[in-house]
Design a protein around this nucleic acid. Structure first.
Lengths: 196, 196
DNA sequence: TCTCTCTGATCAGTATAGCAAACATATGTC
DNA sequence: GACATATGTTTGCTATACTGATCAGAGAGA
């Protein structure tokens, strides 16, 4: 039984991520509220995130235990240095992903932000860094960016030929369903990669 | 109070995603086991995913209720058409992301697969499709891919000048911490985007 | 037939993450 | 000082997703 193809990356590492989606948003809310109003209270965070005060109270007390949130002398919520680092990291990932989706992939602002929000806390620092490098190259020249966008647009109809599809080579057809790559529809069953 | 900057994409849509991370892996496990052995039982799925039989039993019964898993005449687990579609979609996202991280961003196989596994079930069809287009362009020419990799490598030291950083324009510095873009370290506080 | 193992389901308990409601403690106004 | 509002916590409940233990049923073998 194929059990651990890749022991360093088990599928359940997802749960053991440094920070959960909701924790990230609590931290960012405290950060943003302090920036905007100079203080942050449980009620303000609850209102901003549209959760009940009870839920905010519970979550924030957990984040206090974890050392990411404290209180200032006026008993207002305050991010610790570590909390600030986590919040900024997730925010940065969000900005990087949004920019990439919008300006490189040419997606609408809505879909770009929706996808970015879901992935922001899961993308590693490494990936974010390299995405920035890629964008620095692609977006540094308007002509280059325009070329990429126009070529990408021409790909909307899928692979026109098996011989000239650089992606499907190697046995895995990557063209999503609905725009089937008919030359590779019969591509052999993928390898067992359940555990990734 | 900034409450709903973007009603179409609330931060908690994360929870309302079509499919959860674990559900995706249960479906893929059934699919993979049937491919490899011709059948799939609760115990096999549990063993493959390294969870207890109890957990697998509970999760699979939920997936049956949702109409993604049924049983064949021999009472072995079987994906419904809808279940198959979901499983293939997530697998495809995984392959797209892994290929992008490895071959475009130049990441190690480990980090590429780890990040891809975490995001596979969250990336929209739209994003996956466009990533494929981008890769078809970039990877269709070895020279082009090599150029991108070498230019990206030259960016490892951050922005060398505020005037020539195409990314930081517009007030948000995207260069991750640790390789600070000193010209923009003072970049104004980001806009409130807690709700994305 | 009796027993043993395999299989799958169920139950108690854990952890996250939410809601609604009740509650306690402020704070502020009349 | 008394009442009313605001704020934060606690409690009971839900849902997902696990562990570990227990339990019921189906087969296989002696």
């Amino acid at each position: 039984m194929s059990k651990a193809h890749n022991d360093s990356t088990h599928w359940r590492d997802f749960e053991k991520n440094d920070i959960t989606h909701s924790a990230a948003h609590y931290l960012m809310a405290v950060d943003a509220l302090r920036d905007e109003f100079g203080y942050a209270r449980v009620t303000d965070v609850a209102e901003m995130l549209e959760v009940s005060r009870g839920a905010a109270s519970m979550s924030i007390s957990q984040l206090k235990k974890r050392g990411w949130i404290t209180e200032d002398p006026h008993r207002f919520l305050l991010l610790t240095d570590e909390g600030k680092t986590m919040a900024r990291l997730v925010e940065q990932n969000f900005r990087i992903l949004t920019k990439f989706f919008e300006e490189v992939l040419g997606m609408s602002s809505e879909v770009a932000m929706s996808d970015a929000c879901k992935m922001e806390h899961l993308m590693s620092l490494e990936t974010g860094r390299r995405l920035v490098w890629l964008m620095r190259y692609i977006l540094s020249d308007e002509g280059r960016a325009a070329k990429i966008h126009s070529v990408m647009a021409s790909f909307r109809n899928g692979c026109e030929s098996a011989e000239h599809c650089p992606l499907c080579e190697g046995g895995e057809c990557l063209t999503p369903k609905g725009e089937a790559c008919e030359f590779h529809a019969h591509s052999e069953k993928r390898k067992l990669q359940i555990e990734h």
